[in-house]
């Protein structure tokens, strides 16, 4: 355990938060998609994080964090009667995605705040490391 291990920890967190931000972007981009069946409708994705223990991390002896899996948002799919739509099923229904724009915006802000926190950790650690190196320079 040393100061430089913080970089790998914070780096893995930056990576995970980027994945989360990407998922949010994908959800927002797909918010307006429609499908011809309930199974085919787009479901919002959520990144689930998992803490990695030190011995699973490989070269570093600090822990870290990774995206364990992407899960589908369990909220229900809305269907709408729109017989004129070319994608409509035989009863004239189309199926909308279950993306909630408000939730996605909140998710995006949370991810970006977490990202900033980790960048701050990296900055502070770097400054302290530089000072430690300067100590022997005199």
């Amino acid at each position: 355990m040393a100061l430089e291990d913080i970089f790998s920890v914070a780096g893995s967190a930056l990576n995970a938060q980027t994945t989360r931000m990407n998922t949010t972007a994908s959800n927002l981009a797909n918010a307006a998609t429609v499908a011809g069946s309930e199974d085919g409708a787009f479901r919002a994705k959520r990144a689930v994080f998992k803490s990695i223990l030190a011995d699973q991390m490989g070269d570093s002896n600090a822990g870290g964090i990774k995206v364990e899996k992407l899960i589908d948002d369990p909220s229900p799919i809305r269907k709408m009667s729109e017989p004129g739509n070319p994608l409509a099923d035989k009863d004239g229904y189309i199926y909308l995605s279950n993306v909630n724009e408000m939730t996605e915006m909140v998710e995006m802000m949370a991810a970006s705040r977490s990202y900033q926190n980790n960048v701050e950790v990296v900055n502070t650690t770097r400054q302290l490391m530089m000072r430690t190196v300067d100590m022997i320079k005199g």
Partner: peptide, 12 residues
């Protein structure tokens, strides 16, 4: 500092 960094990394 490393432990606290780990906490911040795992805030979610």
């Amino acid at each position: 500092m490393e432990l606290l960094g780990l906490n911040i990394a795992n805030s979610d």
